[in-house]
Design a protein around this nucleic acid. Sequence first.
DNA 1: CTCGGATCGTCTTGACTCGGACGATCCGAG
DNA 2: CTCGGATCGTCCGAGTCAAGACGATCCGAG
Lengths: 164, 164
Amino acid sequence: MRARPSADTELGLMACSAIFRPADLTFLLHAAVDRMTVDLDRAAVEMGLNDVRDWLVLAALDDGQQRTQLELSRIVCVDKTTLISVLDRLEQHKLIVRTVDPADRRVRIPQITPAGRRTYAKFATARDAAEARALDGVDPEQRTLLLNLLARIADRQNAAQPAT
Amino acid sequence: MRARPSADTELGLMACSAIFRPADLTFLLHAAVDRMTVDLDRAAVEMGLNDVRDWLVLAALDDGQQRTQLELSRIVCVDKTTLISVLDRLEQHKLIVRTVDPADRRVRIPQITPAGRRTYAKFATARDAAEARALDGVDPEQRTLLLNLLARIADRQNAAQPAT
DNA sequence: CTCGGATCGTCTTGACTCGGACGATCCGAG
DNA sequence: CTCGGATCGTCCGAGTCAAGACGATCCGAG
């Protein structure tokens, strides 16, 4: 499991909102991510995965498309060198296999196994449950607004001119 | 500056939304955080800071309260060992000084210097500008709703029972 | 006062990440 | 066919982070 701040500092997060202005967008985003990550990491370890990234990789492989490791690394936003260790672990747990593309023997085609599919499905339901818990009591209209606003922030171009 | 994924993988983030279901709360949160962090990190380096955490520390010290390093680490949610290097750097740049508490010679009281205050103020305006950019065109009512929902997610108790 | 346990800041160590280098392989030019 | 450049996966080295060990210091019991 990826190292995370200990419980001490974890709780401290909440203390921040008392000290910093409470409506700090960046701070709240970080806090919300941390909160979700705690849930998802726990769900991941419960089913033998290491990390949310393990699940991201499984998710990307679940559609059965043939992807090279490089494509995969771009899709899940993991450095290609880091992806290697993830794939090593998943392969060791028999959740994926690395096949060689007969048409180009340089590339490896990681493919999800039935066991990997089962693990992925279990994690997906856990994730859905976590998100439902997080949004419990928020009416659907507000949910979609939240998601839209987040998407809007995320999609914003990196247009802030690169330092004159 | 803290290492971040290269531009390649950075852009790949957006590709995710095409592959995963587009309304994935966790994914959007991550993407939004990444987006804000890019802006803030850039602002930080422009004024000689290393990191957003440098600014967090300055912000926590700006109110002039006497805090030990341990308290400080809890407030800014940084491991106490990591905080040491942050304080070392800030002290080297003369933005803070470490004083010894005369009442308890074990503890150090980091205090912000006038130069530190100036740097903090500059960063604060840069941060406000970044957040304003991120929320450009969103009407005030929706902004407060967004912040409230984020706070709600973040504040949620770690109540998911710790694995039976 | 003395002494054992608790608490502070720092140091050490092991794990992780990522940029760059490397071997294997492909492909197009000649 | 041969050969040079491009592209794949992997490995290595520098840097970062945090858990645990450690010395210095405090404080309460006796």
